[in-house]
């Protein structure tokens, strides 16, 4: 009954019925976003003002970039919440990378070296994650452990105090603009293009999806799942590192414990991308839309004068919607 909806989808969906979903559902996600945005625009004249839109994009950048990385992990590892790919260390690695850069620049290193050091530390965390998962450890527990390690290292090198993130280069990251957009937004769009095209249009992307959906079949087809899985954790950690640098720049300081604060929202945007996909899988475009949607929602609630406590409730409802969509997909899988 659900096959009809899947037919227009890509030929890559060899088992089209499996990922099929009612046609209305495929667009429900976008329709909801559109409805909310229109409602916000109608009720507050300040919403669609360029300065406000730039602020929303800027607020979304950190979550979107880290979310891209997590999305790659979920795509490659499979989106089963318990056994699939997951990287719980993204928040902590972002916090660690930001702290490394701040401490390095305080120690007098030039910005480029500070940033390189931060990304190297992030890559190291990704290597540990990838190696452990490839060796057969459960991603959920592996990345929980590295999350603890990264969080702890952050406290060690920062002494649990905010480390100021000063210097012209970092101020440019915070307040500068390229082509009329805040720097963080430009970084987000560039990474969106790179990761999105990579996952959507290259053989690496197609194979990553294949590994995630059926590793055995992928192996039979001559793909080495381990390589793809390892790389996914490396990519995730690197993107988390970039997100952490932007977050520290935004806050003018590396804030200890910030990693735990951002983790849930990163997980939310990556998983929420499911509702923006016609095949109901995690996608990069969906992650971007989800991150923008969450930021717009928080911003819009403020514009409407809704107490910000309600944003938490709204996010909770969104998570439930995503889970409901996944459950519906599961039901159509069973048929």
């Amino acid at each position: 009954m659900s096959t009809a909806a899947a037919t227009p989808q890509t030929g890559a969906a060899q088992r089209a019925p499996r990922r099929g979903a009612p046609a209305w559902l495929s667009w429900a996600g976008y329709a909801t976003v559109l409805a909310v945005v229109l409602a916000l625009a109608a009720s507050s004249p300040n919403f669609l003002v360029p300065a406000n839109l730039a602020a929303v994009l800027n607020q979304a950048a950190v979550y979107a970039i880290a979310g891209f990385g997590l999305a790659v992990v979920i795509v490659t590892g499979g989106d089963d919440v318990v056994d699939g790919g997951i990287d719980l260390s993204v928040g902590a690695v972002a916090g660690l990378a930001g702290t490394v850069a701040a401490v390095a620049s305080q120690a007098g290193l030039p910005p480029v070296a500070s940033i390189a050091g931060a990304l190297a530390v992030a890559a190291a965390a990704g290597t540990v994650n990838g190696a452990a998962v490839v060796l057969g450890l459960r991603p959920l527990l592996t990345t929980l452990a590295t999350m603890g390690i990264a969080g702890s290292l952050t406290l060690v090198i920062s002494n649990n105090v905010k480390v100021p993130f000063t210097g012209a280069a970092f101020e440019w990251l915070r307040d500068g603009s390229l082509a009329g957009l805040p720097v963080a937004v430009v970084v987000m769009l560039v990474l969106f293009a790179v990761v999105g095209l990579g996952l959507g249009s290259t053989s690496w992307g197609v194979r990553s999806y294949a590994v995630g959906q059926n590793p055995t079949a992928a192996k039979v087809a001559g793909i080495n799942p381990r390589k793809y899985i390892f790389n996914s954790y490396l990519i995730s950690a690197l993107l988390a590192g970039i997100a952490g640098l932007l977050l520290s720049a935004r806050l003018s300081a590396a804030v200890p414990g910030v990693g735990n604060q951002i983790l849930l929202d990163i997980i939310l945007v990556a998983f929420m991308s499911v509702v923006f996909s016609r095949r109901l899988v995690v996608t990069i475009t969906g992650t971007l839309v989800a991150a923008l949607f969450i930021a717009a929602l928080t911003n819009g609630f403020t514009l409407l004068g809704v107490a910000s406590q309600w944003v938490g409730a709204a996010k909770g409802v969104l998570i439930l919607v995503v889970l409901a969509v996944v459950a519906i997909r599961g039901r159509s899988d069973a048929k």
């Binding site: 919403f47 406000n52 602020a55 607020q59 935004r250 910030v258 928080t298 911003n299 403020t302 514009l303």
Partner: peptide, 12 residues
């Protein structure tokens, strides 16, 4: 992070 965003949103 949210405090910064809140202030930005209030400015809008």
């Amino acid at each position: 992070d949210k405090h910064v965003s809140d202030v930005e949103n209030l400015i809008s």
